[in-house]
Simulated scan of single mutants.
Amino acid sequence: MIIESKRIEDKGITWTLRCPTKSDAAELSKLRFKIDGETENLDREPGEALLTPEDFEKIIYEDSIAEKTLFLVAEVESKIIGFTRCEGNKLSRFRHKAEFGICISNEYWGYGIGKTLLENILLWADTTGIEKISLKVVQANRKAIELYKRYGFVEEGLLIKDRIHKDGNYYNTVVMGRFVDK
């Protein structure tokens, strides 16, 4: 699905929220690789499960025509600095739910971009008829967990020793969900 672009001014920066286009594919591929190396809050090490520009072109096209999928980018001065993707489930038994993730280049953490991406995903989900939206968060990322809780997410479960970080230690993953009563 495609939504209209928005210009946002917050915390001293102006940025654009929009859906990606085919011409963004190479930049998104590079950004995803970069962000994977900036934080251990995401699932991948740099270069793992690499998405090429061609992969992104396909995702952008498929998401633009899908009824229950939304892909948004955050752009500062014509440079994509973050994105979120919410994907609905195509299986009949799970058509009421969607899963999402957010990633932002660390130089733009603290500007409220993640919060705005989240708000727009939730607004879209609520108007699209998605009754459950979920995500997974490394338990050590307390700031993200608290943000999601402020927006109505609850902790549904804990995956014990779910991941190993560069420090050699195991970390738990929190499964979170937000429900719309129907």
Rank of each mutant, 00 (worst) to 15 (best):
M1G: 10
M1K: 08
I2W: 08
S5R: 13
K6T: 03
I8F: 02
E9H: 11
I13Y: 09
I13V: 06
A26F: 03
E27F: 09
R32Q: 14
R32W: 07
R32T: 10
I35N: 09
D36N: 14
E38I: 00
T39L: 04
T39W: 10
R44V: 05
R44Y: 15
E48D: 13
L50E: 14
E54M: 03
D55C: 02
E57N: 04
K58Q: 11
K58W: 05
I60C: 04
Y61S: 11
S64R: 03
K68V: 01
K68C: 09
T69V: 07
L72N: 04
A74G: 07
V76T: 06
E77V: 00
G82I: 00
R85H: 13
E87H: 09
R93M: 03
H96S: 06
K97Y: 04
A98G: 11
F100C: 01
I102A: 09
S105A: 14
Y108G: 05
G110S: 04
G110F: 03
I113N: 04
G114P: 01
K115M: 03
L117A: 05
L122E: 05
W124H: 12
D126N: 15
T127P: 00
T128W: 05
I130S: 05
I130E: 06
K132I: 07
S134K: 09
V137R: 06
R142H: 12
K143A: 12
K143W: 08
L147V: 04
F153Y: 08
F153P: 00
V154K: 15
V154R: 15
L158D: 03
L158K: 12
L159Q: 14
K161S: 15
I164S: 11
H165F: 12
V174C: 10
V174I: 14
V174S: 13
V175G: 12
M176D: 12
M176H: 12
G177W: 04
G177S: 14
R178P: 08
D181V: 07
K182S: 11
